[in-house]
């Protein structure tokens, strides 16, 4: 048991080191083109700020929606932009997973002694995601009191929120094992996730609430972490932790099932 635990810890540490190393070199590669690097990061910060400004004017004009105001909106964006930033900055190929699968691109990762899925996900960074991340951090520093609780929850909340988003990316990408190329479905599902996770949670009721929590799990990824940033509630904390872990396990199970259908880069199509 002790031996197994040691082995597990060693594997986690090695993979963490691997991810860190890859992220460093992905960034180094992106920095080769200075203008592109700075412009993508800068314009994403501006883009997110503009959205938040719009919400500011909205709440100034119409007041709170079922007790949901600008401060709550900032909390939502800290987790929406934050998780999107973390996932796409570190696991920059998450959004391309479906394409990689349908093009037979996993072949390359199979020949290395690392988990091929992890390797595929980390082998790219999305520069604009670093802008999202910086925006989320700035929003937190500027609009929330820097208490021990808020700082700890920011990190913990980002972890679970990012885990849910990453799992959703893998789940949607895995559809390519069965459907082949499916960019439209992929884009619609990902846009739905982002749209649901960056809008006021108070307007969501009934079936839509069920949908947002259990079909497109934006609720667990941003609504609950955002509420927890403002006030701690044990039940909500447990929901987030349990859901994100179970969702991740299910996603990996589905991915591995799909992997059996993977047919490499040999796209054979006969025209007779």
């Amino acid at each position: 048991m002790l031996k197994e635990s040691k082995k597990l810890i060693s594997t986690v540490a090695k993979n963490f080191d691997f991810v860190l190393f890859y992220t460093k070199y992905n960034l180094a590669s992106a920095m080769e083109f200075r203008f592109n690097f700075f412009s993508q990061v800068f314009f994403m910060i501006i883009n997110d700020t503009m959205f938040l400004l719009l919400w500011y004017f909205f709440f100034e004009h119409f007041g709170k929606l079922n007790g949901f105001g600008f401060q709550e909106m900032i909390a939502i964006w800290i987790f929406a932009a934050g998780s999107f930033g973390w996932v796409n900055a570190i696991f920059g190929n998450a959004n391309n997973l479906g394409k990689i699968i349908s093009n037979g691109g996993l072949d390359f990762y199979f020949t290395f002694p690392k988990n091929h899925l992890l390797h595929a996900l980390v082998s790219k960074t999305d520069l604009s995601a670093w802008g999202d991340l910086i925006f989320a951090l700035l929003a937190f520093v500027l609009f929330f009191p820097l208490t021990l609780y808020s700082c700890v929850w920011l990190i913990v909340g980002w972890f679970f929120s990012s885990l849910i988003l990453l799992s959703f990316y893998i789940l949607v990408g895995s559809l390519s094992f069965w459907l082949g190329r499916n960019e439209v479905l992929h884009n619609n599902l990902m846009h739905a996730f982002i749209a649901f996770s960056s809008n006021p949670s108070s307007v969501v009721q009934g079936f839509l609430k069920f949908f947002i929590f259990f079909v497109i799990p934006a609720g667990f990824a941003t609504f609950l972490p955002a509420e927890l940033l403002q006030t701690f509630a044990l039940d909500k904390f447990i929901y987030v932790v349990i859901f994100s872990i179970i969702f991740f396990i299910i996603t990996i199970f589905i991915y591995n099932r799909g992997l059996k259908k993977y047919s490499s880069g040999n796209l054979i199509n006969i025209r007779s």
Binding site: F21, Y25, S29, F33, P113
Partner: peptide
Amino acid sequence: LWYHLPAMDTFYLFGKIYE
């Protein structure tokens, strides 16, 4: 090889991958 980086960087990465 990483297209935008020196080959040396890929070698270091591979050193890490192969532990």
